[in-house]
C-alpha cells in the first residue's frame, strides 16, 4: 500500500511536468500590430470580445438603411490591420499569421467574412478612412453604445465576482 502511494507520488509530479510545458509556453496568439494608426475605434478589450456584435449591428444599418461612414466597418478593419509584405504589397488579413487569422485559429473560430468581403485594403484609402474612423462619441449609434456599455457592465461584474 505504502509502495503504491509512493509510486503515485512519484508519477503524479512527473505526469504534471509532461503536461505543464504546453501551458507554460501558451501566451496566446501572436497578433501583428496595426499597420496604420495607433488607436482603434474602441478599446482593445471591447474590440476583442465584441467586434462581431459591433460589426453585425453596423452591417444591418449599412445594408438595409444605407448608413455609411460609420466607425465599425469591415473595410476599415482591413485598411488599418492588413500587413504589407517585404515588397510593400498588402497581405490578405485572413492569411496565416495575419491579424484575423492568428487569433481565430487560436480560438478555433472559423472566419466566414472573407469568402465574400475583400481581405485586402482599399487602394489609396487608408488615410481617408482613418480620419473617418476616429472614435468621436457622436459617431456611435445607440446600439453600438449599448453593446459597449453592456460589455463594460459585464466585464466589471465578472471582475467583481472574481475578486470576491
Amino acid at each position: 500500500m505504502s509502495l503504491r502511494l509512493n509510486l503515485a507520488l512519484l508519477i503524479l509530479p512527473a505526469a504534471l511536468l509532461l503536461v505543464m510545458p504546453g501551458y507554460a509556453d501558451d501566451n496566446g496568439p501572436v497578433i501583428p500590430p496595426a499597420t496604420y494608426g495607433d488607436q482603434c475605434v474602441a478599446d482593445t478589450d471591447i474590440m476583442r470580445k465584441e467586434h462581431m456584435s459591433l460589426l453585425n449591428h453596423q452591417r444591418d444599418e449599412t445594408v438595409i438603411e444605407g448608413i455609411r461612414g460609420e466607425p465599425f466597418s469591415l473595410v476599415s478593419c482591413v485598411n488599418c490591420h492588413a500587413q504589407n509584405d517585404n515588397g510593400g504589397q498588402p497581405i490578405r488579413i485572413d492569411a496565416k499569421g495575419q491579424f484575423c487569422e492568428s487569433c481565430h485559429t487560436y480560438a478555433a473560430v472559423k472566419i466566414d467574412c472573407f469568402t465574400c468581403h475583400a481581405a485586402l485594403p482599399e487602394e489609396n484609402a487608408v488615410i481617408g478612412s482613418l480620419q473617418n474612423n476616429l472614435p468621436v462619441a457622436s459617431t456611435y449609434s445607440n446600439k453600438q453604445l449599448l453593446v459597449m456599455q453592456s460589455h463594460k457592465v459585464a466585464h466589471k461584474a465578472s471582475h467583481d465576482y472574481q475578486r470576491k
Binding site: V75, T115, C116, A118, L120, P121, E122, A125
Partner: peptide, 14 residues
C-alpha cells in the same frame, strides 16, 4: 463558384 479578389465596396460570394 467561389470568388476571389472582390472589391472592398462590392462584397460578392458563392
Amino acid at each position: 463558384e467561389n470568388l476571389t479578389d472582390q472589391k472592398p465596396s462590392a462584397p460578392r460570394g458563392k
